[in-house]
Design a protein around this nucleic acid. Structure first.
Lengths: 209, 209
DNA sequence: GTCTATACCCGGATAGAC
DNA sequence: GTCTATCCGGGTATAGAC
């Protein structure tokens, strides 16, 4: 992609965008071996670069991981925003949001894992808290419509909707839906219908003060 | 605890139950440093034993981790069974089950993480699939009562209840409830009330064929 | 059943040359 | 901006003595 090499031989990234290439390669590595086995050394190797090279662009290992995380948050927000269209009823839109949440986890597993499994230091990267908050706002706005502008009820609905979507997402990634023909769609549809059920039965929800 | 040393000096586990001690120490280590940083070497060090000693009792690192996992499943099953009493209505019992699920995650974090974060090889340890299935049966039996013996409806309700409980559990461990005075209870109560809402609105649930 | 000793591999990180 | 060279630490695992 951004593999702009100034020299054909040697595979060196002189003048090339090594920084972006490192992020791409990191995502690919995470996709193959999981977040846990991510290593700066292996990423360097795959790019045909020395282990010392990345340190010109990232302070340390966690710094590269955080860069991946930032890309992940952006992609996640975009995936959810694409569902926040004004079609259908508010209830169906909230259900679609939950489905999109699960679908993102299934289709962009390395990004989703980077967000939730890695444990990025939020005090070191404050942009993270902000970005996560933005995700929540997408759910909140929709829940507010469902609840007819009752803020307390909307908060309660939003919280359980997110948790339900998150539960389906993590179980999906844990392999709990692997017996199905299409695990991702099954999990996403189930999360969506669960959201509709939550809305129907929402008078039972606990209202946080 | 099972620290039965035959010699006062040297801290050696001759005749002692090193196997059980290793499991205990492993749990303690996971509690302190998380599943990710678990290592056979560190466990050995803490017990005052050489890194070679564990290999008399466990084939390798994963084998000890699996032993922790088996203890975890048992404890989890017991925690849930304690909620499956015949008091209250079926609906309230299912809600209590969901709450207990979340509470176990919060109170026995190292065990819960060992089950879901470690990634124990289920083909190598088949007792795991069985034990997990048993957990599901607890939910299924309760859901069946709620649904008046309608098996298809019960399956759908069971699946979303588990996913909802799981979502609250993982978000709790991710720190999403850390703003609350009592994060564990907040998450558990929220999962319980969500379950009641799911039951009330369950006509919206998708019925798997 | 545990220890001593060892071999091996891998990751993180830095100094200094080019 | 990248490479060479190198150091450090840590984990897994085994052989053979006791």
């Amino acid at each position: 992609m951004s593999d702009t090499r100034s020299e054909a031989k040697g595979g060196r990234y002189h003048h090339g965008d090594l920084k972006a290439a490192l992020v791409d390669a990191a995502i690919a590595l995470i996709a193959e071996r999981g977040v846990r086995d991510f290593s700066l050394a292996e990423v360097s190797r795959r790019l045909g670069v020395t282990v010392a090279a990345p340190y010109r662009h990232f302070a340390d290992r966690d710094d590269l991981l955080a860069a991946v995380g930032i890309r992940a948050v952006d992609a996640f927000a975009a995936a959810l925003a694409a569902q926040a269209r004004d079609t259908d009823s508010p209830a169906q839109r909230l259900a679609a949001l939950a489905g999109a949440y699960v679908r993102f986890a299934g289709e962009q597993r390395p990004l989703f894992d980077t967000l939730f499994v890695t444990g990025i230091d939020k005090s070191r990267y404050p942009e993270f808290r902000r970005a996560f908050h933005a995700l929540e706002e997408t759910f909140r706005a929709c829940a507010l419509e469902v609840c007819g502008q009752d803020a307390r009820a909307a908060d309660a609905l939003m919280a359980v909707t997110e948790a339900t979507a998150h539960g389906h997402a993590t179980l999906l990634l844990d392999g709990s839906f692997d017996d199905e023909e299409d695990p991702v769609s099954t999990a996403a549809d189930q999360a969506a219908s669960a959201t509709l059920a939550l809305i129907k039965g929402r008078t039972a929800l606990r209202r946080p003060s």
